[in-house]
Amino acid sequence: MPLDTRARARQALRAHVPELADAALGELGRGLDNTAFLAGDMVLRVAEHDVVPREAALLAMVAPRVSLPVPAVRFADADAGVLAYPLLPGRPMLGRPVPAGLARPLGRFLRELHAIDLAAVEGLAPVEDAHPAEWLEDLDGPAELLRVLRESVPEPGSRRVLAHADLGAEHILEDGGAVTGVIDWTDAAVADPALDFARLYRDFGPEFLGEVLAVYGDVPDGFGERVTFFARCAALEDLAYGREPGRIEYARAAERSLAWLFAN
């Protein structure tokens, strides 16, 4: 019988950090792709077995190339499907007021991330060339909002970069008014750069997005349309995700975002 996520985390601890083998395992969070536990000051993310070594290698490659902290992997256990790293300071931004000054470092971070030579990424991140219309497959939500999305599908962009691809408030850590980390790189892919602005727009609004883009630099024609489309889809995804027990904060944040995402 396969081990559950907690048992897999415990197994990996015993193998790699025996001094924490008997430490209490507190659940930090649970997403669609992984579950995170905390043992002492060590985060253990339990995910699909095959993605763990790839994500560890990706983080090691990204870390020296960007100006914001990313997880520094302590060990990657492919057999248990566990990625472990020391706890980064700060708390996720989901459901919290945004301190002034957070947009600029995120704009710089995205400029650096998207400038990484794709040759350095080969084998570390999948290539995702999906047409924006494919985001509508299995998407649920209010009929009127789904109609707006179906009537506003943008043309796909041609540029591809290394994208975090899930850069929402829950994956941005903040402490004392500063960004202290960007976590959960499970969905990182060679993809449309607009993906990395969509959840920032969804979670923090148009003014914040404008500040990020001002630091990031020039973007091609049609970029804003794709950011808006992806942000709207991501908001409806979180509305559905937030219906499940223990995830109400996702639904509340998504509901707030509808005011600017569907204003027209």
Rank of each mutant, 00 (worst) to 15 (best):
L3P: 09
R6S: 13
R8V: 00
R14V: 11
E19M: 08
E19Y: 10
E19W: 11
A21W: 14
A21Q: 12
A24K: 07
A24H: 05
L25T: 02
G26H: 02
L28M: 04
G29K: 07
R30K: 01
A39K: 09
A39F: 04
G40Y: 05
D41Q: 07
M42F: 09
V43P: 06
L44D: 00
R45I: 02
R45S: 02
P53W: 11
P53D: 08
P53T: 14
E55S: 03
A57T: 00
A57C: 07
A60G: 04
V62K: 14
S67I: 05
L68Y: 13
V70F: 10
R74H: 05
A78V: 06
L83C: 00
Y85F: 06
L88E: 10
P89A: 07
R91E: 15
G95S: 15
G95A: 12
R96I: 13
L102P: 05
A103M: 07
R104D: 07
L106R: 03
R108A: 06
L110I: 03
H114A: 12
D117G: 00
L118M: 03
A119E: 05
A120K: 06
E122D: 02
E122K: 07
E122F: 04
G123D: 01
L124G: 00
P126M: 08
V127M: 06
V127D: 02
D129A: 10
H131W: 08
L136H: 04
D138A: 05
D138L: 08
A143P: 00
E144N: 02
L146R: 06
R147W: 15
V148R: 07
R150K: 10
E151G: 03
S152P: 06
V153S: 06
P154T: 13
S158L: 10
R159E: 14
R159C: 14
L162Q: 09
L162E: 09
D166W: 06
G168M: 09
E174A: 15
E174D: 11
E174W: 15
V179C: 12
I183F: 13
W185G: 00
V190R: 12
D196M: 14
A198I: 13
A198C: 08
A198P: 01
Y201L: 13
D203R: 11
F204G: 08
P206L: 15
F208N: 08
F208Y: 14
A214L: 03
V215H: 00
D221Q: 14
G222P: 15
F223L: 08
F223A: 12
F223E: 10
E225G: 15
F229T: 12
A235T: 11
L239K: 05
A240E: 15
Y241A: 03
G242S: 03
R243V: 10
E244D: 13
I248R: 11
A253E: 06
A254N: 06
L258P: 04
A259S: 15
F262A: 12
F262I: 11
N264Q: 14
